[in-house]
Design a protein around this nucleic acid. Structure first.
Lengths: 260, 260
DNA sequence: CACTATTTGTCCGTATGTATG
DNA sequence: TCATACATACGGACAAATAGT
């Protein structure tokens, strides 16, 4: 095998020095196991010797040995005295590929391949912060829409939106069938500008239930502001807050650059 | 407090029975700590008694006591004999609002307004998956770079990258001073295509330490593939995985649409 | 064949940490 | 709080298998 320093990073070395009560041998074992499972140390390759491990990670030989013995017990490596320890695990890249979804156009196509449940569709008084963003006078109402989008029965997105400027009434069924972008267009509203902010949040009880996950699980948060231009001024007409389940939805974008 | 069964889920109960060698008292301590930090057990509320914990989780009273003593040592709870153990931590959902950052160009400008710490900068054997993406033969090495970016002393991003195709050697100091985009350009590499995938993940111990947050806290995950074009074929030359602290970094994009 | 270096296997004694009743 | 049992971790010592000289 190549030099041990070329396999393990300094940050990994530090990992072992953290003062957690998890046994040393187990942390070293985990480190080595990961290196084998992700193919950093390939099948057939010789592992570092107990002595090398002990010196590199600053542990006793007994501890290094214990870690390697654990690997051997799982048949990830084979140990023979005099020869050393060799990897007996064949790394095979996983075929997986999460469904990837892209920008505005693709979002519409995705919408057609998913099921929507409308939880709320009513003219309501929005929270003050959103009312101000929408430029509505005090007491005015906006269309409040809450939906959950699923794919193959698995919910992946929780959508909550506040819309102003929708003249004609829109039925609940329309929102289940069409995207809001399509509805805006049909109503003659020409969006001129959209800003999106992506972040991450922990699921609260409500979201956890909607997206069938655990409280505290990480979610992708997306806030979209949609503007129209009236009298040369930009006016927000739609505020959208989406929470996505990261295992079932990822946000992908392609950028072409350096064309010049 | 309410019934102990109403606080902890069955999966959490099982969590303690896992056959990991981490000490029992520490696992119980972690469980309780999270429940306090995320507000499941509110400030001033009474914790379960040692006896209750012991029975619920199937451990001895001493072990339950040890876990609670650890909490008390961190001043998350106050213990008084005869009265019980009470939470002394005020959970406050973060108000958020962070500096907003945008696409490639803005990323460079942001880079200039932040401090970088290089944790790793060495040619190393990459995990097999990444080695294949980079089109490297077995055993080949790539430049492994781990950095943490801070703003006003607050770390907001943890960057780990694997780069192939950097001909001339690049010093650790260069990476602290320039962005990788600039370095690629200087080396004459013309990136022609970039894909980015955004998701959300929970912080592990390592990331939590780097970004000064809690284990399990939601982080923004960004994976960037950077391609050059050689002989009309796209070739990956850089793989970047970034984890952002969502309170200190958000991903914002502006889209102009409906121009037609 | 012996000789040597390497590497794993086994054993000792000791100290500390963990978990129980 | 105590006594007890077990696991972890260390350093050291020596034996046994392997490979090369």
């Amino acid at each position: 095998m190549s030099s041990i320093a070329e396999i393990f990073s300094e940050s990994q070395l530090r990992e072992l020095q953290q003062d957690r009560p998890t046994p040393l041998y187990f942390r070293l074992y985990s480190l080595l196991k990961h290196a084998i499972l992700d193919g950093t140390i390939g099948n057939g390759a010789q592992m570092p010797t107990e002595q090398q491990l002990a010196e590199t990670f600053g542990v006793s030989r007994i501890t290094a040995k214990r870690a390697m013995d654990e690997l051997a017990a799982e048949e990830l490596v084979q140990r023979r005295r005099g020869r050393g320890t060799h990897v007996t695990y064949e790394y095979t890249p996983k075929p997986v590929r999460a469904p990837l979804v892209g920008m505005l156009q693709e979002i519409e196509s995705m919408a057609r391949h998913s099921e929507v449940k409308v939880l709320e569709c009513k003219k309501q008084t929005p929270p003050a912060r959103i009312r101000e963003l929408l430029g509505l006078p005090d007491g005015d109402k906006a269309l409040h829409l809450v939906r959950v989008r699923s794919r193959d029965g698995q919910p992946f997105g929780h959508y909550e939106s506040w819309s102003a400027g929708l003249g004609k009434p829109v039925s609940k069924r329309d929102f289940a069938r069409f995207t809001r972008l399509e509805i805006f267009r049909k109503q003659g509203l020409k969006l001129t500008h959209v800003t999106q902010t992506i972040s991450a949040v922990a699921a609260d009880e409500n979201l956890a239930a909607s997206l069938q996950t655990e409280v505290g699980a990480p979610l992708i948060s997306l806030v979209r502001h949609s503007f129209i231009t009236v009298a040369k001024r930009e006016q927000l007409v739609d505020y959208l807050q989406v929470f996505y389940h990261p295992d079932r939805f990822q946000y992908q974008m392609d950028l072409e650059i350096d064309k010049a």
